[in-house]
Design a protein around this nucleic acid. Sequence first.
DNA 1: ATAGGAAACGTAAACGATTTCTTTTTTTGC
DNA 2: GCAAAAAAAGAAATCGTTTACGTTTCCTAT
Lengths: 328, 328
Amino acid sequence: MVRLKDIAEVCGVSVATVSRALNGLTNENRERTAFICQTARDMGYYPNAAARTLKTSRSNNLGILYEDRMNHEYFSSLFDELRREADAHGYDLTFLGQGDFSESNYYEHARQRNLDGVIVVQADYDAAGIIRLATSSIPTVIIDHTYDGCDCVTSDNRSSMDQIVRHVYARGHRRIAFIQGEKGAVSRERLAGFYKACAELGIRVPVEYVREGHFHDPAECTAFIRELMRMDDKPSCVLCPDDYSCLGALWLLESQGVRVPADISLVGYDGIRMSQMMTPRLTTYCQDTVQIAKEVFTLIIDAIENPETHIPKQITVSGMLMEGETVR
Amino acid sequence: MVRLKDIAEVCGVSVATVSRALNGLTNENRERTAFICQTARDMGYYPNAAARTLKTSRSNNLGILYEDRMNHEYFSSLFDELRREADAHGYDLTFLGQGDFSESNYYEHARQRNLDGVIVVQADYDAAGIIRLATSSIPTVIIDHTYDGCDCVTSDNRSSMDQIVRHVYARGHRRIAFIQGEKGAVSRERLAGFYKACAELGIRVPVEYVREGHFHDPAECTAFIRELMRMDDKPSCVLCPDDYSCLGALWLLESQGVRVPADISLVGYDGIRMSQMMTPRLTTYCQDTVQIAKEVFTLIIDAIENPETHIPKQITVSGMLMEGETVR
DNA sequence: ATAGGAAACGTAAACGATTTCTTTTTTTGC
DNA sequence: GCAAAAAAAGAAATCGTTTACGTTTCCTAT
């Protein structure tokens, strides 16, 4: 590997001069500066990140925290967008696993690697390790969860449900059931949005219409729907926790002779690709992962570059209702 | 952050002694060594990765090269397994994006970050940047493609097709069509396996039975299937490029009144979760991502630790045929 | 022509670890 | 009990950068 010293020797100047020249710290490109830069390029110079990090304690490297498996399309596409943003801003992305770090001490891991910041994509938000990280001096942005006084970017779980309810209401539905996903901030918000919209529209919601389930569990979702359909006062429309379960349910129901949306209307959540590739196309709500990633980076970069003046923000990114063919 | 120096002061020894104690370079745990280690733990010491990397030119960090989007379940689950393995072996994983690196010079990026090795999960295998990396002195393992003289781990694309063909043959099918995915090593291998099995079983394959398509394109897959079904000598079974297209096609066909497997048998590829969650369950072939990840790490760790004696290997990992309900 | 000031460059000290070499301490054999 | 060998600890160099601090060079104004 070619070092500053090598360039310095070739150019006949000192190492410091080369460093300044390459970092543009010299007053405008005098002839010599240009020569140095050209030589560096010719020699194929790239700064040694470790050395630079050691000296400046800046690594141009961000941590990504993701405890679950990557098997959800929402997360994997969010992740792709984060990767794109990182690239655009000149940062690398390193996974913050547990590794040696048995006590879920993400904070130490981040420190050890001199990470400039951490993006929490998905985690157990009640765990001590996460809270420690979020409240540490390391710039941290949390996605899809809100801590007071921390930078957070969430999708509009509350208002999206509001939109969905109003949408199906507009199409004539008055008996709307809601299958929730895992307990947590996301489900809480969605439930709140659901109740609020129903209340505002004067829709009565029997307790049995709201079920607590899990994300990404088509079998469970199907079971719930069948139960709901067996009720005397059965719902005409069911809001599913996500597209994955909804699609699975849709499929299973059809194979059992239930017609969607003739017999029952279904709404998904996420807007995964497959939901738009089959008939009937799912009516669903598509989160704006592009925008979420953008907001994450404006926050984290401000936190990194202006550690003094930066004030944590909670940002909500709204998605878009995608009208399909599963709501009558 | 607490440094070796701090520990040294507290313990009243030199920095060198602390370093040796922590790295176990002293002859067995004398009292002093134990004391130093305990103090280090109490003080919450973690070695500064940048400093250590600078001195040892080992980073305990591997690059992951993935050019496409993460939106395929095969890749995202492969990726999860790699992450698990990395954790288990004490490595971090950093994404090798393009960033500043306009001419796709992954090699420089890896060098700059002092990566100990690079895992190529998916890339344009003909691009100069990849070849440069693969033939460089940086330990590199390629997944799902084979370069001579490089470490490669591929799933058994050839023998899997062989198994699939024999399976449907055993169930009575003699007119078997095959929709290929994108051109490339994977498709080439699969096609070879397909032809070989057909030849061995004495099955005639009309040229129109083999179509060149794309991965993950349900619409295209459906179109091909419909064309095939319009033929006079129409196939009784179609092998699709992947589960995603196969599922989409299955769905679309059913909605158009075509029954699977009554009217036509379908076989997927990948074994994505959803393929096993609906009726009919897809007959498909499931790649062993766990094993692939394991093999990748045995290769790359040997390459890192024994740079002199390491000899590149090409390893094939076999998956498993999953018998579903889409083949009559 | 020269003093004064600005600009450019060089010197050297960091950053936090590892490691070689040297010195000190401990052990061991007689 | 002492010399020699072995073991442990310390001192200092080093990895490749950045950067504070001096020094030199070069301009400009008097």
